[in-house]
Design a protein around this nucleic acid. Structure first.
Lengths: 139, 139
DNA sequence: TTACCTGCAAATGCTTTGCTGCGAA
DNA sequence: TTCGCAGCAAAGCATTTGCAGGTAA
């Protein structure tokens, strides 16, 4: 796999990094560190968890990944279409939600904020996912 | 201090809980666990950090506090006026930002989302705070 | 009175780090 | 060839837990 990332040439594209990014591009469910580790291990059986940690941090700092934290659990994603999050308070599930109009509206408001220079915006919607709602009724 | 919280009677209002909530109501800068611990310790010198942890978790689960996580650091707040966050990518500082119009707009969009029942919304604006911007230029 | 809560200390588990050998460029 | 990176194991820390005594209701 070739990663199409321009302007980020000052780093080595090791197999480990390539597979971590590939895994996150293919698994949009906001995996945890362990889930990334288990997933990548299917391709690179000898990868260590320390390498996964190091690279998730490294790639996040460089803007190749995004880190999300819900209910004390750190999760990762590689979705660079501007989007928002639907977060279930019960199970901690995160779903992406695209709304160009909300993005535009928020950025317009961002333009009027003094003292902070804002480069991105993300709205979190909190509530209950379908499954947890049904579980509440039935169980 | 009397906590004016209705409908939350099934818990004991120990001095520790009262002081933790009081501290967070007076310190709106999104303190960390350690900062809460140090702050409350000025009133209750014998409080343990385990008690602070237990209660921050307990009170968050009951909706008396909100937990925010930025750059891997967990912070707490007790601001129940609907608000948004300005988050500095450099230093991790969080400022509250009130915008009724953004709140209303987001909730209107929330009403049209299928499969998730949404009860609250929070927009995070990411960028650089004034101080970090100046530090970047000067240092 | 009694169930719930606190403080202490120990345990847990996520995350980071130091170091040696290796591989991308 | 060289510097950055991977893997391993150990260390570091934030957070949780078990338990005995204390306290709010």
């Amino acid at each position: 796999m070739t990663l199409e990332i321009t302007g980020k040439a000052d780093m080595k594209y090791t197999n480990q990094r390539v597979e971590i990014i590939a895994f996150l591009r293919e698994h949009r469910g906001h995996p945890t560190v362990d889930e990334v580790y288990e997933g990548v291990r299917e391709k690179l059986t000898r990868i260590s968890k320390a390498t996964v940690y190091k690279n998730l941090k490294f790639l996040s700092e460089r803007g190749l990944l995004e880190e999300v934290n819900v209910k004390g659990v750190t999760r990762f994603e590689a979705n660079f279409v501007p989007h928002h999050h639907l977060i279930c308070r019960d199970c901690g599930k995160i779903e992406d939600f695209e709304s160009e109009e909300l993005f535009d509206y928020s950025m317009k408001i961002a333009g009027g904020i003094e003292g902070f220079s804002i480069d991105s915006v993300n709205t979190n919607f909190y509530g209950k996912c379908k499954k947890c709602k049904e579980d509440n009724i039935n169980g």
